[in-house]
Amino acid sequence: MYKNKWIAYLFITPMLLFLIVFLIYPFSVNIYNSFFKYKSVLDRNPAYVGVNNYVQLFTTRQFKIAIENTLLLTILVIVFQVGIALILALLVSEIKRLAGFFKTAYFIPIVISATALGLMFLMFFREKGGLFNQILANFNLEPIRWLNGMDSNVTLASMFLPTIWQYIGFYFVIFLTALNTISDEMLEAAKIDGANDFTLTFKIKLPLIQNVTRVVLVLAITGTLKVFDLPYILNPIANPNGETFLLGTYMYHVSYFANKNLGLASAFAVILAILGVGFSGLVNVVFKQNKDI
């Protein structure tokens, strides 16, 4: 019954059409445009400039800043988001009562739109009367200019905090699901052999969930490349002086506001896509799948 190949082709055609029209075709347009210099958005005769746009992009201060900030966020995401998620999962796997409640609670921020979360955190970060400065005032501390100050490190920290906070519960659930598949017999046997909590965690549990850890890292790293909504809501023009751009927010800025050279924005888009595919490939190589588990 599966001999009739034209049915298979018929069934995959609508999917291919959507992917080609709305992803592949526009991406090809980006590749093509990235080799031309536009004098204005409506420039009918853009000049062929080879890889000039790419060279120019890498010498742009804000592009470098956006790359640096995104790398910084990636490191923080791995250490804090993935780290806290793993610790919470190890803790919850130790208990029976209330485990369901913690799982439900930790996952809530994931289902809320980043827009709503962004507006919520805007109220927390407000210089005058925001939640955080009210708490500081209770301890007689000076208010901090979280998002509108001149110190880009404070601003970056304020943008990263909710970004990292939101997804901890997501990786927590993935880790917890993996930990729950480890058989109780194995853990009991190890305990009888005298293994302490440290040995149990580092010699048994973590090695056994290593494939899941790899998946989590791929997701977390490629996820940071796509971060847009939350930082954009909190700080749309990358205060102070464009020093807090991330790749996502800078992409939007270049496409719609920054300059009239469409080629430059296209080159950026191409680099972004290459980074996305390259990054996940790299993580897959570094954390090779262990087939023995």
């Binding site: 995959i12 709305f22 526009p26 939007y252 469409l262 595919v277 996940s280």
Partner: peptide, 24 residues
């Protein structure tokens, strides 16, 4: 080939094609 193509499409962020997509 179709399957590899689908995986590649999953990787890439939709905002990287936003400008040409908008034109379409």
């Amino acid at each position: 080939l179709v399957y590899a193509f689908i995986i590649a499409c999953m990787m890439f962020p939709i905002f990287s094609v936003i400008y040409p997509l908008h034109q379409i």
